[in-house]
Design a binder for these strands. Structure first.
Lengths: 339, 339
DNA sequence: TTGTAAGCGTTATCAC
DNA sequence: GTGATAACGCTTACAA
């Protein structure tokens, strides 16, 4: 086992001082050609690599960014992480991923853990519990310490920081409009509790589309599921008690699951009932029929967040200007709606 | 903006020495009750938190573990990460995730980046390119430096280290046997190139089951797709040219995709053709019909890897004993096979 | 051209 | 009971 070699080791072996070694390896003009060559050769031979931790301590920069998301096992967040990682790595940053598991406490713990020097900034998406409690003190503390934060997707107005979202309302609007344009009149929505910022926005967009097209918004056509429960009975009841010819779902799991229940009761998709979901994941792609969705461009969101964060981290300027980047969703038309 | 407070700051404010502060905050016996209380109160008031980086430098322990996987946007790996994260966090470790994107170069770069002090150990799953090249020098270097490595799922015999896998061969065997037991005689397999350790093992298991039950292994019933291409034509040709009543697929995407193609040509599933895939993800669960799969227990694998890694990291012992943990897969029976 | 020393924030050893 | 000092590995201003 050949342990990592340090500047000190090189200095000792070559009988020069540590600073000479340091400078030589940085190709400093100060050092003579001879010495530099000797030191560089030695360093190369022994595969010297500077210790990141020491550099971090010195520079007060870790080149790590902390990502706190509600759930890793979720296609959308996964694409966000991929975008973050891609961009961050290209700029020499590492990504520390922590999942809050939709829990407020875990979100707080993870942030505190990382905020003590481990990272230069945060990219995060709020846990549902946090949005429900509406308690953002952990975020406030972090920003007050001067640690930059970028909120993605699940955001809040309570915190001043950079934000990246897609226009969820527009997405739902586009989806509902699509259905209306295809002659659907009895359009339902399957959504989650209102405290989730994105579901709220999507429900708004849905309502807006109906209203603008002279369709009455009927509460009985709106089913609210508690988060990810996938309560089969509730959906069945919904289908039993409601006359629908189209359903908008706030995520792809709701959509694919409901499609199946619809099929089981003999409905043809899209002829009898058309479906649109959110999140352009594998499920939508490979469902049968394939699902028309509002694509959220998670990877793009990740890249942009990472860019905003790193720019802020590296900017000397002490300006307190924050921006909110709103991306346009895209409708990906597949077989669950008429083309 | 209230910047982070350090021991030095506290010492200055309270007019004591840094070491007194350090000891007081550790509740050392050496320090008088009075001083301790004063210091602790002050620290609490100003929300003192020790700087992780400084501690890392001192202890030569980062409490970070590096995870290098081929792809984050992949349900199986995602569950592995979740398991790692869960276990690691519980033991006070953070998880730095890097995706190699199935690329050898990115795998090498990421490992080098992390190996310079950022992490205490690695958990990794080899990229397909690495398995293809069969080049593991980057792993050798890391282990020679004394950094513990745990390989998960996509492993190699070239490296001596702890390993965690499921018994892929057994999984495929169980799946094929299930089909045989249900009277299927013409069982095909859709797999990937042989250099992927898991696909190879699964193909072996498939063959073994056939042979043990007196069914001839027919190369024409074995389709090899190049990784994740999802080449529709190839699968169609396969179905055209081969007479099959059951198909085993080495992942859920292959399975769900082929099921669709089969359905499109009028085959009933499972009556005319039954399907079994690998990976118990959302796709399998929500496909129509739902897919019978070999569950790989990714989360469990993640937890075990993390446990093995952290145990090794924290063990003083310099013993060079490595173990390979082989988990048993489980067959999750759904509607794509007869019950 | 090379070396010394201070400092990043912490802990541990040893002296007072 | 308290504090000075060295050390972790590196950078850099300042001496020599």
């Amino acid at each position: 086992m050949k342990a990592k070699i340090t500047l000190k080791d090189i200095a000792r072996e070559l009988e020069v001082s540590i600073s000479t070694v340091s400078k030589a390896l940085k190709n400093s003009e100060e050092i003579s050609r001879d010495t530099k060559e000797k030191i560089q050769a030695f360093a190369k031979l022994y595969n010297y690599r500077p210790n990141n931790i020491a550099i971090s301590l010195k520079n007060k920069r870790t080149k790590n960014i902390g990502v706190v998301i509600p759930d890793i096992v979720h296609h959308f967040f996964t694409t966000v992480i991929r975008g973050i990682e891609k961009y961050a790595n290209a700029r020499g940053y590492n990504v520390i991923v922590c999942s809050s598991d939709e829990s407020f406490d875990r979100e707080v713990i993870n942030m505190e853990m990382l905020a003590n020097g481990s990272i230069d900034g945060f990219i995060m998406s709020l846990s549902s519990e946090t949005q429900k409690k509406n308690d953002y003190n952990h975020l406030k503390e972090v920003t007050e310490q001067g640690i930059p934060v970028v909120l993605v997707d699940r955001i809040t107005n309570e915190i001043e920081c950079d934000k990246v979202v897609i226009d969820d309302q527009l997405g739902a609007y586009m989806a509902a409009k699509k259905m209306i344009d295809q002659g659907r009149k009895k359009i339902g929505i399957i959504t989650t509790a209102d405290y989730l910022s994105v579901s709220r926005a999507r429900t708004e967009g849905y309502k807006k589309a109906l209203m603008e097209h002279g369709i009455e918004v009927d509460e009985s056509r709106m089913l609210k599921l508690s988060s990810m429960d996938m309560d089969e009975e509730l959906i069945k009841d919904f289908f039993d008690s409601t006359d629908l010819d189209a359903v908008l779902c706030v995520n792809e799991i709701f959509a694919v699951f409901s499609m199946r229940l619809a099929q089981k009761r003999g409905l043809r998709i899209p002829e009898d009932m058309s479906f649109i979901g959110f999140t352009d994941g594998f499920l939508s792609q490979y469902a049968y029929p394939s699902l028309t969705v509002v694509a959220q461009h998670g990877q793009k969101m990740g890249e942009i967040s990472a860019q905003m964060l790193i720019d802020k981290v590296e900017s000397e300027a002490e300006e307190e200007t924050y921006q909110t980047k709103i991306l346009e969703p895209t409708l990906v038309v597949r077989d669950s709606t008429i083309n």
